[in-house]
Amino acid sequence: MEWLVITSLAAIAMLVAIFLLRLPRQGWMLFAAVLIFGLSGYGLFGSPGQPSAPKAAGLETLRSGEQLVDARRSLFDDGSPPASHLVLSDGFARQGRFDQAAGLLRNAIRDNPNDAETWLALAIALVEHAEGQVTPPAIVAFSNAQDAFPEHPGAGYFLGMAYLRSGRPEDARRVWGELLERSPEDAPWREDLEFRLAGLDQLIQQMDGMRRMIEAQNAAQQSAAADAE
Rank of each mutant, 00 (worst) to 15 (best):
Q133H: 14
Q133S: 15
V134H: 04
V134D: 09
V134G: 04
T135K: 11
T135G: 13
T135D: 12
P136C: 14
P136L: 11
P136I: 12
P136A: 11
P137N: 06
P137H: 07
P137T: 12
P137F: 02
P137E: 08
A138Q: 02
I139Q: 13
I139C: 06
I139S: 05
I139T: 13
I139V: 10
I139F: 13
V140R: 08
V140D: 15
V140A: 14
V140N: 06
V140L: 08
A141Y: 13
A141Q: 13
A141T: 08
A141F: 15
A141N: 02
F142D: 00
F142Y: 12
F142G: 01
S143I: 03
S143K: 11
S143E: 04
S143H: 09
S143D: 11
N144P: 05
N144R: 15
N144S: 15
N144H: 15
N144T: 01
N144M: 14
A145F: 06
A145H: 13
A145L: 05
A145G: 03
A145Y: 05
Q146G: 02
Q146N: 04
Q146A: 15
D147L: 15
D147M: 12
D147P: 00
D147S: 14
A148W: 07
A148C: 02
A148P: 00
A148Q: 04
A148H: 01
A148K: 02
F149R: 14
F149M: 12
P150L: 13
P150C: 08
E151W: 13
E151Y: 10
E151R: 12
E151P: 00
H152V: 10
H152R: 00
H152G: 03
P153Y: 03
P153K: 04
P153L: 06
G154S: 11
G154K: 00
A155W: 02
A155I: 00
A155E: 00
A155P: 03
A155Y: 01
G156P: 09
G156W: 00
G156N: 06
G156H: 07
G156T: 03
G156L: 05
Y157V: 10
Y157N: 05
Y157M: 08
Y157F: 14
Y157L: 15
Y157Q: 07
F158A: 04
F158G: 10
L159N: 01
L159S: 09
L159K: 03
G160A: 14
G160H: 07
G160I: 09
G160C: 02
G160K: 03
G160M: 02
M161F: 12
M161I: 11
M161W: 08
M161N: 13
A162L: 12
A162N: 02
A162H: 07
Y163H: 13
Y163M: 08
Y163N: 11
Y163A: 05
Y163T: 02
Y163G: 00
L164D: 01
L164T: 04
L164S: 04
L164P: 10
L164V: 05
R165E: 08
R165W: 10
R165I: 09
R165K: 15
R165A: 07
R165G: 11
G167A: 07
G167N: 02
G167C: 00
R168Y: 08
R168E: 10
R168W: 06
R168S: 09
